[in-house]
């Protein structure tokens, strides 16, 4: 039996989550700005010795199989690109949250991070394949953060999987968000939005976290971004990378067509590229973690 989370409890859960590191927080602010340069990212990373060391480790990891060792942070960042820098920074300071076992969804430790990484890659690929006017690095970052609310409510959903699946199977109109709300009083987008506020995330990222299952409810100025992540999220689930019991149990908003033009062939290309890119990214981020 689950118990409803009160508003006060939700606030308590949110405040118990560690804050983002200063560099991660500034990186997210930077990514959201339309007219920023890679040089800004480089300067930011340079001021953080730990992050600099990690970035160099990732670029020199086996996944990229570079012939010559990269020792300059400028070169490392230009080679890896902003999205990988953001992944490293988030993974370092909020890794515990992302790697958490989501027992309330019967998902193993690491499944949320993999789903988020797949969503991030897919959202960015959707931008490329459709040619929409959107910053691809921002789509990536938004994808990475979109489901963070699941880590907050998962413990409260423990033991509810059979009930949740029953709720969504019984009525055609209901999706997993409804099940979450019925069972614990909040769905993962509401919980995630509270964390977004506590972390003082840029508004566009908070909007993605709040509306990625219902992009039509997002503020008009951010709606295109929210639709891109909405598609990225669905593509991640279709590819077999959900977070357990809720996988594929959400609605696809067909009005994405008013914002993003994607053909069956370009969708197939997105899915293929996500597989290729994920393999590379995941192994480079994982195998560079331990100090040597």
């Amino acid at each position: 039996m689950t118990k409803k989370i009160s508003h006060e409890e939700l606030q308590k859960i949110v405040t118990s989550v560690p804050m983002l590191s200063a560099s991660a927080s500034q990186l997210l602010q930077l990514t959201a700005k339309e007219d920023h340069d890679l040089i800004d990212v480089i300067n930011l990373v340079r001021n953080d010795a730990n992050l600099t060391a990690r970035v160099l480790k990732v670029v020199n990891s086996a996944a990229f199989s570079l012939v010559n060792k990269v020792t300059s942070i400028d070169r490392a960042i230009s080679y890896l690109g902003e999205r990988i820098i953001v992944s490293i920074a988030i993974g370092d300071c909020a890794g515990k949250l992302f790697q958490k076992e989501l027992s309330g969804y019967e998902a193993a430790g690491g499944d949320l991070w993999k789903h988020d990484l797949r969503t991030a890659i897919a959202s960015r690929e959707v931008v490329f394949q459709s040619g929409v006017d959107l910053n691809p690095a921002l789509a990536f970052t938004a994808g990475l953060l979109h489901d963070i609310g699941k880590a907050l409510i998962s413990d409260y959903l423990q033991g509810s999987v059979i009930d949740a699946v029953e709720i969504v199977s019984a009525e055609e109109e209901l999706n997993y968000l409804d099940a979450e709300e019925i069972l614990v009083g909040f769905d993962h987008t509401q919980a995630g939005y509270e964390l977004a506020k506590a972390w003082q995330l840029p508004e566009e990222l908070a909007e993605v976290i709040r509306h990625h299952h219902n992009p039509a409810n997002a503020k008009e100025e951010y709606r295109l971004l929210v639709y891109a992540v909405h598609l990225g999220d669905n593509i991640a689930m279709m590819g077999g990378f959900g977070t357990g019991s809720d996988s594929m149990r959400y609605k696809l908003d067909n009005n994405y067509k008013n914002y993003i033009n994607i053909t069956p062939n370009s969708l197939a290309t997105v899915m293929l590229n996500v597989d290729i890119e994920f393999e590379k990214l995941e192994s480079s981020l994982n195998n560079s973690g331990d100090e040597t």
Partner: peptide, 16 residues
């Protein structure tokens, strides 16, 4: 070959 809810033709990769 699953499909997400309310999928349109483009996203029915499971079906295809």
């Amino acid at each position: 070959g699953a499909n997400v809810m309310d999928t349109n033709d483009t996203f029915q990769i499971g079906k295809r």
